[in-house]
């Protein structure tokens, strides 16, 4: 959808490629498209192709920086990434339009699919399909978890943190807030010290 011509942006954080202020509707629709077409966990790849290479809303280094932060801070990675890009384009309003576009239409789609399965709930096949998709989906998550583990296992200490968090949640069944409240500060302090020494 073409945005109406607007005056040059005075915002110094916009990427050089974006010479005009991008319309909020344009942002909403662009993120809706990502939300509705990117299946199965590869969404950040789609976002990179669309927003960096095609629309040139953000340069690649800035995108990757945002991606790294999105992955390590609380929140859904692609939602955080949408905030990063929307904020670059139009500040808070842009971030809001991006998140609404990413989540709104795909929420309707997800509920529609769930409603269809509910209608078919008396069929044995329905449960088999969902159980099969669920098992494969767990496999997709495992691939992501293994990548995250490999990327973060940079020292004996960080490997110990991974193992301790896993054991605390799975084996000792400790509540998540407790686990994060203990593990996160310790891990951050150790990383900070290592930075200062290194």
């Amino acid at each position: 959808m073409p945005s109406p011509p607007e005056p040059l942006s005075a915002d110094s954080t916009s990427p050089p490629a974006a010479t005009r202020r991008t319309g909020l509707t344009t942002i909403f629709l662009a993120f809706s498209k990502i939300g509705l077409t990117a299946f199965g966990g590869g969404m950040s790849g789609w976002m990179m192709r669309d927003f960096v290479r095609e629309r040139r809303w953000i340069d690649e280094a800035d995108f990757l920086n945002g991606l790294a932060l999105s992955q390590s801070f609380p929140g859904t990675n692609v939602v955080n990434l949408a905030i990063w890009i929307g904020n670059r384009l139009r500040g808070g309003a842009g971030a809001t339009a991006a998140v609404a576009g990413l989540l709104g239409p795909s929420l309707f789609a997800a509920v529609a699919i769930l409603a269809v399965f509910d209608l078919l709930t008396h069929l044995k096949a329905t449960h088999q399909v969902l159980a099969g998709v669920g098992a494969a989906a767990i496999g997709l998550s495992l691939e992501m978890a293994l990548k995250a583990a490999r990327r973060s296992a940079t020292s004996a200490f960080s490997i110990a943190v991974i193992a301790a968090v896993f054991a605390a949640v799975c084996l000792f069944r400790l509540p998540l807030p407790l686990v994060v409240a203990v593990a996160a500060p310790i891990s951050i302090v150790v990383a900070y010290r290592r930075k200062r020494e290194g």
Binding site: A68, L69, Q71, S72, F73, G134, A135, I138, S141, L142, M144, A145, A148, A149, R151, S152, A153, T154, S158, I159, V161, I162, A163, A164, V165, F166, V169, C170, L176, V179, V180, A183, A184, S187, I188, V189, V190, A191, Y192, K195
Partner: peptide
């Protein structure tokens, strides 16, 4: 900021692995 990023990464990885185990 770099330390926060690096420090949170293994916590996140441990949580993701735990999720797989619980779901399976």
């Amino acid at each position: 900021m770099q330390a926060v990023e690096e420090g949170l990464a293994p916590v996140s990885a441990g949580l993701m692995l735990a999720t797989i185990f619980v779901l399976l």
